[in-house]
Design a protein around this nucleic acid. Sequence first.
DNA 1: GGTCTGACCGTGT
DNA 2: CACACGGCCAGAC
Length: 114
Amino acid sequence: MPKDNTGFFDKVYDLARQIPYGRVTSYGAIARALGAAGSARMVGWAMNGASNYDDVPAHRVLNRNGVLTGKHHFPGTDLMQKLLEEEGIVVKEDQVQDFKDLFWDPVTELGFED
DNA sequence: GGTCTGACCGTGT
DNA sequence: CACACGGCCAGAC
């Protein structure tokens, strides 16, 4: 057996898969939803390996400002922005417009808060 | 097995 | 308002 996933990573991927179409969330929100508030960096790092999963929309995960901080990690130059725009999300200057309106908080939407 | 790094976030000066 | 620093956890060397 391929030695189970790194627990935390698996949770991050699982949560990322639940991000609705046309919506975005932040690394911190995911971390907080997983009960690892403060370890948002880990979420970003986990996303680094998300490229290995076709069902993990890493492009829907931004930082708290709604900025495409990880766009440089996508193949090409503006693939991340392109993917978001295809979902109807307006991106300008690497920043999502109406971010707060498109923001999808897993804690609220999925009721992760205890 | 210790040390550095990382697609972040919050607070302090 | 701009910059610095600490913290969180896991992976790579």
